[in-house]
Design a protein around this nucleic acid. Structure first.
Lengths: 325, 325
DNA sequence: TCGCATATGTTAACCGGTTGACATATAGGC
DNA sequence: GCCTATATGTCAACCGGTTAACATATGCGA
């Protein structure tokens, strides 16, 4: 491994000079600068970022904890997060918790041991939240942990309301809502609240089913939806809390020879790529995924720079009406 | 920040003793061990992994360079890679090159500066490959760079053959192949070779279209496919080099009132989640994504441990026949 | 009582780069 | 000829752990 000493020696200068060149400090003549750069090129020298991190007490690492990057929503979000992190000179440590409490805690500890400069939390299975070091910049997605920790979320209540009222306006008489785990205190559950509020307000028959995120087991989802339609054959509208789940609903309807949107109207959530890949194309509530990713990095970096940040960041959602309603 | 010194002082021992406890070396009495652990607990001490990495010259980091984690194939692959890396005590640095030459090179340099223990390359836009430090463990996906660098790939030729011959057996008279960029020297292009071989062998009319990966622009894909059917209205079979692209084909067929599979038979590639989420469910060639991810980590770790590894790792593919053929 | 296993301390070097304090030297302007 | 900006060197401490070498002390079995 070539070190700064090798470079200094070969260039006939001291490590101080090389360091000055690397960090643009003090006076350096053009001749020396060029000479040193040539040697660095020749030796293929790359300054050891670990050593730098140690001294500077800054790793330029951001930890990202999500349920799983295999889920379209998180995969798209991660891609934006990584993009904006890189733009700002940060690197992303990827952690898939699989919504496993133990793993989530282990990842948190691991990230702290590795002295990440900040953590983006998109997985929330832990109840006790005081384990979080208050000095470490954190941003959470979709959950308000405490008043100190900034969170990013889209307007879930509005999303739930838009979705539900669209179905009602389109004439649905009995609407099913397929939600995530309502026991986790996630802001996404406001979609459920809005659903209930809207449906009660308009006096529409309704039913709710809870599910867990498990992208790799769509069979299980199908069964669940099948049972739902068996128990409630008169369902004519489904508001699904994710596009993936909505895709499964479409699949089951197709099997049951229910026409979409004539017999059953379906609306998804997120507006991930799958929504527009499906046939019929899925009506859905668009979360501003890119903006959410960009903002997460912005909030982390502001915290790193000791700037004040807005704690509550609710971004607008948008109804994207396609072919399933 | 609490350091090992703080722990030592508070516990009334020396840093050497604390270090011995942390690393399980030398003789330590139960009493001391418990005492020190209690203090670590109390001070919420986490050893600084950056300092450890520096001394040990081992970061336990693995760099992952892929086109984009937003693409279902890479998102699923990444999720497995991260899983098996974590199992083995490694962390993943995520890099999305977006198939941009400059970015890919910058990421490579960045990973070297950060002293990752190994690199998994799933993005290959660079022609000059000698920039790769031969001492740094590398595994590539889908590309044979040199005889020294182990690569993982599924049996693309076999996959292309299976797909093409299925379409022919199902009676297709004119088959379109939608491939990736054939100018990049990717092993995935063997699918194209197999397609051509098979179609010539059986004397079937055919046409090929090249595309670039750009998950976020499915509109553009639609146009492309639309044009394809306009220019060749008699196409009755499509072999698409990814499930996502196949989904777009389904969509266009639906618009053009072509019945699937009666008028047009479609086969995809990868068997990502979307394949079974679609209606009709997509016939496809399954790549063993989990095994590919697991193997990537295994090969990296073996190289880190100076063990010999198989250079050529071609995993079997499998035809998954569903509803589009 | 000797010897050895056990238990802990002392000291200092090391990983690779950064930085502050201070010294030294040259060249150009006034 | 003095002052100052420019250019580089010397030296050592520091970031937070790890480790080798050696010292010291205790307790127990033979």
């Amino acid at each position: 491994m070539t070190t700064i000493k090798d470079v200094a020696q070969k260039a006939g200068v001291t490590v101080t000079t090389v360091s000055r060149i690397l960090n643009n400090r003090g006076y350096i003549s053009d001749a020396t600068r060029q000479k040193v750069h040539a040697v660095m090129e020749e030796l293929n020298y790359q300054p050891n970022e670990i050593a730098r991190s140690l001294y500077r007490r800054k790793s330029n690492l951001i930890g990202l904890i999500i349920p799983t990057v295999a889920h379209p929503f998180f995969s798209e979000l991660s891609s934006y997060i990584e993009y904006y992190a890189y733009e700002a000179g940060y690197k992303i440590l990827l952690c898939n918790s699989h919504l496993d409490k133990v793993k989530e805690k282990e990842y948190l500890d691991m990230l702290k041991r590795n002295k990440v400069d900040g953590i983006i939390m998109g997985s929330h299975t832990l109840e006790v939240d005081d384990y979080i070091n208050p000095k470490l910049p954190i941003v959470t997605f979709d959950r308000c942990i405490s008043n100190d920790i900034p969170y990013i979320s889209s307007d879930n209540f509005q999303g739930g309301k838009l979705a539900t009222s669209l179905l009602i306006e389109r004439g649905c008489k009995k609407i099913a809502h397929i939600s995530g785990n309502l026991n986790l205190s996630l802001l996404a559950n406001k979609r459920y609240e809005a659903f209930i509020a809207e449906v009660n307000n308009r006096n529409v028959e309704h039913v709710t089913v809870q599910t867990e995120i498990n992208v790799f087991d769509s069979k299980q989802y199908e069964k669940l939806i099948h049972r739902l339609f068996e128990e409630h054959p008169d369902i004519d509208g489904v508001f699904s809390s994710s596009d993936n789940m909505a895709a499964n609903v479409i699949k089951v309807c197709y099997r049951l020879n229910k026409n979409i949107p004539a017999d059953v109207k379906i609306i998804g959530y997120d507006d991930t790529m799958v929504a527009s890949l499906l046939v019929p194309q899925l009506t859905t509530i668009r979360q501003p995924i890119e903006e959410m990713g960009r903002l997460a990095i912005e909030l982390i970096i502001k915290q790193i720079n000791q700037e004040e940040v807005e704690k509550k960041n609710i971004l607008p959602v948008k109804l994207i009406e396609r072919e399933t309603t």
